[in-house]
Structure formats: C-alpha cells, structure tokens
Design a protein around this nucleic acid. Structure first.
Length: 282
DNA sequence: AAGAGTAGCAACCGCGAGTGT
DNA sequence: AACACTCGCGGTTGCTACTCT
C-alpha cells in the first residue's frame, strides 16, 4: 500500500487472512487469552505480525462482535455520538455493543457522511452547510441521479429508497455459496469422529440456508491440522443464538439514546452537552 | 458481453500514549 | 530523565464485487 512496513516483515504473510490462520489465532486466544500481541504470532504458529493478529481478532474474530444490519437507531446514535466526539471511533464503538471501531469508521465514511452531505449537513461539524456548498452538493446529487437514470430504456428496478444496507462480512476468496453468520465461536465436541470442532464466526464457504444465518464449523483433530482452503473441509451448522453478553444491548442503547435526547430536550446548554460528552470519554 | 467506473470494506500504516527499566 | 517496548487509534490503501455504459 505504498508505505514502508512499520516493522520487519520479511517472510510474514500479509493481506487477507485464510481460514487456517483464523483458526490458529482463535485457538490460541481461546487457550491463552488476548494480549502479548508481539509474541503471539510465533507462539500460535502464525506468520503474521502481532499488529495484524490483534486487528484480525478485534475486528473480526472476537466472539462478541455482531456484524451487519446496522439499525436505524444505531445510525442515529452514531451520528449523534460523532457530533459529540468527532472521529473517535473507538469511543463511539464503545457505546455500540458488538460494533468495532473499524466497522463504524467504514460505515461512517461510506454511508453516513454522504447521507449528511446530501441533507445539507457538514459531516465534520454537523452544522448546516453554507448555501453555495449546499447547492454544489445538491447539484452533484442531481447529476448523479440523472446519470444513473439516463439509461432508462430497459426496464429498471425501482429506485432504491435509501436502502438499509446489510453489511455482510467480506467474503474470503473461496468459491462457495454464502450464508450470513452471526459472530461467536465456541468449542464443542464433534459428533463426527470425536475431533474437536471449532466454531468460527465465518460467513463463507458454506451452503446457503434459508435463514441466512449459520456457523462455519471447522473440524480439528489433533493429528490432522488441515488447511481449510478447501470448502469441503467445513460443515455448516445453523444456529440462532444471542451473542454472549448482548442480551441487553438494545436496553443500553435505548438508555444512552434516551439520556441524550433528554439532554437535548431539557437543556440546550452546551456545558451540559459537553459534560455528557465527557462522561462518554470515561 | 465487455470494459470502465464506483462502492464497500478488510487490512495496512504511522503515530502517540502508556508502561517498564 | 531517557530510552525501549507494546498497544491502540485513526487515516489510508487496495482488492473485489457490483453497476453502468
């Protein structure tokens, strides 16, 4: 990506993680816990730098992550928190259980900032844009609409109403039918041959199921450390479950949201809002 | 059907803060 | 006080899928 590597990475893997690498990482963290990222790759048998391992774990493999389907409430909360906190994604993420800073940052950059712009709001300051800028933004939006509707001969799909985008985890480059998985893992005993089964929050390689929800299940056994590139190495099990520790997520979201609304209703005083923002920082 | 353009997002990077020696 | 090391954060990049022409 154009920059010199931050540390010596001779012989280290880069780019997308393979299922095998994920499995190794998850297994290691299950056994030894998080932390000591520097030494972790070596101990876990990974040819990755510690940073990469940490990132992968934090943004993708952690059991309490919920991915996709950012709700309208969450949308609103993100916008409000951003107006208070700015680009402090980790703080914002901390107020959205199961969401990662990276996901929120991406979601902001690709959706919310554009939406605010189109509504005539500066996504950085959350203030109304000055008219000339607003006009420019609107003109651009109109151009874009014209452009996208100009090939109007063929029957087109109806214009999508600000679609609530469903974020599926990015698929790994293995060809197979996809299914959306929730995100957790757990180790259960296998009914097939007594090997250990590691359930990963993976979303690909597995056959569709009508709910679009399932686990990727990677089979392990002690003397067969498979390379999971081959999709046939997986078995998908459908599960519907509560992500651990999130059963009152909506509650806490609601509470926070209510708290904020209350402040807005009862007091326009910036000092109060600031102190609310301060409290979020703690 | 094919190429060009765009959107989405996982992963990378540098930097700064915190901590230990 | 100075240095080394680790970790976490926010900005950026590049790959892939999708859409348009």
């Amino acid at each position: 990506m154009g920059r010199a590597p931050c540390c010596s990475k001779v012989g280290l893997h880069r780019g997308p993680w393979t299922p095998r690498e994920d499995t190794l990482l998850v297994k290691y963290i299950q056994a030894h816990g998080e932390g000591h990222w520097r030494s972790l790759p070596k101990k876990a048998g990974l040819l990755r730098c510690g940073k990469s391992c940490r990132l992968r774990w934090m943004n993708y493999l952690r059991p309490d992550i919920k991915r996709g389907n950012i709700t309208a409430d969450e949308d609103d909360l993100i916008i409000r928190l951003h107006s208070l906190l700015g680009n402090r994604w980790s703080l914002i993420a901390g107020r959205l259980p199961g969401r990662t800073d990276n996901e929120i940052k991406n979601y902001w950059n690709t959706h919310l900032s554009k939406r605010l712009l189109s509504q005539g709001t500066d996504p950085n300051t959350h203030k109304k844009l000055p008219d000339p800028v607003l006009v420019q933004v609107q003109v651009q939006a109109v151009r874009k609409r014209k452009k996208s509707s100009s090939g109007a001969n063929k029957p087109k799909k109806p214009p999508e109403p600000e679609k609530p985008k469903i974020h599926l985890p990015k698929p790994i480059r293995v060809t197979a039918n996809s299914v959306q998985c929730t995100n957790t893992f757990s180790t259960v005993s296998s009914s097939q041959g007594g090997g250990e089964v590691l359930q990963l929050p993976w979303t690909e390689y597995v056959n569709d199921d009508e709910n679009g929800t399932g686990f990727l299940t990677a089979y392990y056994n002690n003397n067969d450390d498979r390379d999971f590139i081959n999709g046939s190495d997986f078995e998908c099990q459908s599960h519907h479950h509560q992500v651990p520790g999130t059963e009152d997520d909506s509650d806490s979201l609601d509470k926070l949201y209510e708290e904020y609304l209350q402040l807005l209703r009862t007091n326009e005083d910036q000092v109060q809002l600031d102190s609310f923002a301060e409290s979020l920082l703690l």
